[in-house]
Design a binder for these strands. Structure first.
Lengths: 89, 89
DNA sequence: ATAACATTTAGGTAATCGTCTAAATGTACT
DNA sequence: AGTACATTTAGACGATTACCTAAATGTTAT
């Protein structure tokens, strides 16, 4: 996964809000969708973008799919910004 | 300036490369443009997006306009990512 | 005032994006 | 097997984006 997909994923406010929700723990697609006014299909699309960028992982448990934050990609993002500031990694 | 404009600005690879160039000091629009294959008009558009997002500042000195990184917005970005990781700011 | 140079603005076009509805898939229960 | 529920996939549509060429603006020097 490249920085391109990561930044593209972060460039949408709904997706950033999804990440914020996941800060406190894993949630199902349905629980996430309930927090927004858009359709489940659109939420599913956003989750796919976030998953493809590596920012979240998914884990099917029976009928539900749980989504969770992936810290690794966030660390890469922090490294990128710190480097731009001229800070040592 | 909101996070929205910041992340939108960062979602383009040319703009991220421009920021990378500016890591080592201010450059004119022409110097920046010389590093890419696209037209000066397109570079000017990218610089405007970066300026509107607050990621860079511009400073006219005679015939030239110098562009420079703005660390403040980068710090906000770092804070946003750290917060998502659950770290104290 | 005119020319030359640096940069931006205007207007247009093809591609990408976020959203929707409708249909498909995966899983659990009876 | 069949129904119900959770989620995704497919296809379409309007809005936005990145690029281009051509024209405009700002600055310096002649």
């Amino acid at each position: 996964m490249s920085f391109q997909t990561t930044f593209k994923a972060l460039s949408d406010p709904t997706r950033r809000e999804i990440l914020s929700l996941l800060k406190h723990g894993a949630m199902t697609a349905g629980e996430i969708g309930a927090k927004f006014e858009i359709t489940g299909a659109s939420i599913s699309h956003h989750l796919a973008v976030l998953r493809d960028s590596g920012l979240i992982t998914d884990d099917r448990r029976g009928k539900y799919i749980y989504y969770e934050l992936n810290m690794t990609v966030l660390d890469e993002l922090l490294g990128w910004a710190a480097d731009l500031k001229g800070e040592k990694l």
